[in-house]
Design a protein around this nucleic acid. Structure first.
Lengths: 329, 329
DNA sequence: AACATTTTTGCACGCGCTTTCAAAATCGCG
DNA sequence: CGCGATTTTGAAAGCGCGTGCAAAAATGTT
């Protein structure tokens, strides 16, 4: 049973009071340089490190940030998580990972995290209700949304410009003379799905067109193969399929290949996000670049800002997107 | 400034002592059923939840588990992390995510995590020295390794049977009459790389063969394209390339396609891990299935067991692998 | 050298909770 | 109804740390 070395042990060994030890580890505290150095040396020798749990009890900050993401095995989520985790640790925060499963309740997950006195939460999965936002506010833990915004912007959020992204894609397809375009959406009730779909419809309308067909997958490659196949088999003479994300687009490419349908000659296929991997494979994807790094950094900035100034007005940052033209369209 | 509701508030509102509130929330504590119900109801009404940070201060357990993984954007890591996170939360633990960057020091990362009084650590990245293991032991936080084992098995670990996996692959290639086989390794100093490479060499030796060539990537798809291209361009008449993981194998497939080299007719390409995505794309990969779910569960079992019985003998679990034959070989 | 001023230090309290320990309440049964 | 056995309860002592406050030491000023 290894006994932990506490500030008291260090104090005794260094011949000072425990308060001195605490101060030695608190930047900017009132300690003489010599004594601090001495205490730090003794602490080092004893292998002492302040107990951050205990510190979190008194101070208002634990340094813990709840990070809610969806299925990490999906490329976009993994990519985002990587940048988030990196940005957080770089700023001295510690990410508490809350993986969201299919039927999990965001509220319950956050409740649990709040019990750990997280300083804030970054949510990039699930549908965020006002109740959830209120709960966080009531606990004094700022909430930052990624890839979803609350109506009346009741929470800070950063989200890419879905509408513009889809417009870029549609414009390109129409410019190529394509007219019979189908939509392959993602999971229902998803903010991204809704915004992206709306973007496609508006852009098409602008050209005097409408969707020829539509189906719905679950953002996974597998569902892209399935539902993409259905679209292709329906005998609709499609010349373009716009997918809600890259993974499904890759699936549709696969489905087309299985049927000997030429991409992009017969049918164009587009994705969204530009995940690493979209550029490789059977057919490099024409897609929209979703700036993940920028998104993660913006989210952290928002969080920091609110931690600093709890009363500031909520802010929704729309990060820009760009068209990435590759072989699939 | 939202004031948190504490056990004292509940106690006052329920007309009992704070100790009662604590007991009401402690399963198996000595409280009359009626009183517990009452306290719980009052707590519910006030929106009280025990402060797990404070609880962690007294009790020996915080419920926090440090999880060290490499670059999450890589399919295998993401896949593993997903299963780990799922398994941990299912068992009531809270994963504290520690992303390992290129030149980060495992020791420093764990030190930081230990300051948070984690109950244990699962490490699936970086090279684990004995010092690291000792540090964890000294802090009373069990260490469980994934995909790497310490000499003299000084820490619990779970790792797939790299050697057998490579043997299966080599046997298959040789059985197809292939003789000029190259090795595309991963990052140097990586346990997986070492074991897998050794496995290949031993299996080849067993057939009276040796490696025709070898290069080294960094486990990324991109490096597979690069280094795979170099191998293919070297004019070595290779008829097989064995890669240290799937991502690089997919890269090599890509490189072959760029050069109009037929896979598997001219050259066979094999991966390792069988990540989701290995089955799709330009050329479904012949690979070895690395049972991630089983690995994650085994790691958790090991952790639980040691938390239960700190003194038990360290245990190294080798999870089995199976050959997955697809188009690339 | 005597005093005012500033810096450094230690004491003690509190953060929110768990957990002995002993007192109070309840129960069993003759 | 009484007395020991049992369960339930509250007071209080921490857990490891930060910090306000006042005492002590160091510094500065005439």
């Amino acid at each position: 049973m290894p006994m932990r070395v506490t500030a008291d042990d260090v104090a005794r060994a260094a011949g000072v009071s425990r308060a001195m030890v605490s101060r030695a580890f608190t930047p900017g505290a009132s300690v003489s340089a010599k004594k601090r150095e001495h205490v730090l040396a003794v602490a080092q020798a004893l292998g002492y490190r302040p107990n951050l749990i205990a510190r979190g009890l008194t101070g208002q900050r634990t340094g813990l940030i709840a990070v809610v993401v969806g299925e990490i095995s999906r490329p976009y989520e993994a990519w985002l998580l990587e940048h988030l985790a990196q940005a957080l640790s770089a700023h001295g925060y510690q990410p508490l990972l809350l993986p969201m499963f299919k039927d999990a309740s965001l509220m319950e997950m956050l409740d649990h995290a709040l019990a750990y006195q997280v300083d804030g939460a970054i949510v990039a999965a699930g549908s965020v209700s006002r109740e959830v936002a209120d709960r966080c506010r009531a606990s004094g833990a700022p909430l930052v949304l990624i890839g979803r915004v609350l109506e009346k912007s009741e929470a800070d959020a950063v989200c890419c410009d879905n509408s513009k992204g889809m417009r870029l894609l549609v414009d390109r397809l129409v410019q190529q003379g394509r007219q019979r375009i189908a939509w392959l959406g993602g999971t229902l009730d998803t903010f991204s799905d809704q915004e992206r779909r709306l973007g496609v419809e508006q852009a098409l309308t602008h050209h005097g067109l409408a969707l020829t067909a539509q189906r719905r997958g679950d953002f996974s490659l597998h569902s892209g193969v399935e539902e993409g196949g259905r679209l292709l088999d329906a005998g609709l003479m499609l010349d373009g399929i716009i997918c809600a994300n890259d993974a499904m687009a890759l699936g549709v490419v696969e489905a087309a290949a299985q049927r000997g349908i030429k991409v992009p000659d017969e049918v164009a296929i587009t994705g969204f996000d530009d995940v690493p991997g979209a550029a490789w494979g059977r057919c490099p994807l024409t897609t929209v670049r979703n700036p993940v790094r920028e998104t993660a950094l913006a989210a952290l900035r928002l969080l920091d800002a609110r931690l600093q100034t709890p009363a500031r007005a909520t802010q929704v940052i729309r990060v820009g997107v760009t068209l990435v033209e590759r072989a699939s369209a």
